[in-house]
């Protein structure tokens, strides 16, 4: 028992020093961020976020007390030296993905990003396919029609314009 006492002592001394070091370091990091993060720095992050209550109002312009508190929390975290992505992750961990202005690219959310381009490209391909079919179908009458509606240029433009206007009337 008598031998154990200095070991305990040493352990507690190290622990105390460790805590003092952490306190000093965190104090230093606060000092390093001085002056307090500006509203613009806070808003730069808040602009990319939405609170779960105020639907569709970005956090930087939301006038509610809750959103004010969130912005203050962002300010504190910036003062602690946290990066924007760490701050956003903090809010995601506590309130879910909906705080972000767009869903994270994971799981089901991929559908948000993938489906519109797939639909558009499919539409484009279908359009080209339809064009090709039309072209094949109309080859027989192609030459005949072309000679009837020759590309207009120069003085022919005037004739075409008058022709179109006449047809309207």
């Amino acid at each position: 028992m008598g031998k154990k006492a200095p070991a305990n002592h040493l352990f507690f001394t190290i622990l105390l020093l460790f805590f003092i070091a952490i306190t000093v370091l965190s104090f230093k990091s606060v000092r390093a961020q001085e002056p307090t993060p500006s509203d613009d720095e806070v808003n730069a992050i808040a602009r990319q976020m939405f609170c779960p209550i105020c639907e569709n109002t970005p956090l930087d312009v939301c006038p509610t007390e809750a959103c004010h508190d969130w912005r203050e929390l962002i300010r504190q975290m910036l003062a602690q030296g946290k990066t924007p992505s760490e701050i956003k992750q903090y809010f995601v961990d506590h309130y879910g993905d909906r705080v972000l202005s767009e869903p994270p690219r994971a799981g089901l959310n991929w559908l948000v990003y993938v489906l519109p381009p797939i639909a558009f490209i499919t539409g484009l391909l279908l359009l080209f396919r339809a064009f090709r079919m039309w072209k094949v179908k109309s080859t027989a009458t192609f030459q005949e029609e072309v000679s009837a509606s020759k590309p207009a240029h120069g003085n022919e433009y005037a004739t075409r314009l008058e022709d179109e206007l006449r047809r309207r009337n």
């Binding site: 970005p58 909906r98 202005s101 869903p103 799981g107 089901l108 959310n109 990003y113």
Partner: peptide, 16 residues
């Protein structure tokens, strides 16, 4: 759809 499938609402905002 996300709310129905996962029970979680997500935001699809201006950047998207």
């Amino acid at each position: 759809i996300s709310e129905i499938v996962t029970g979680q609402k997500i935001t699809v905002g201006p950047p998207f």
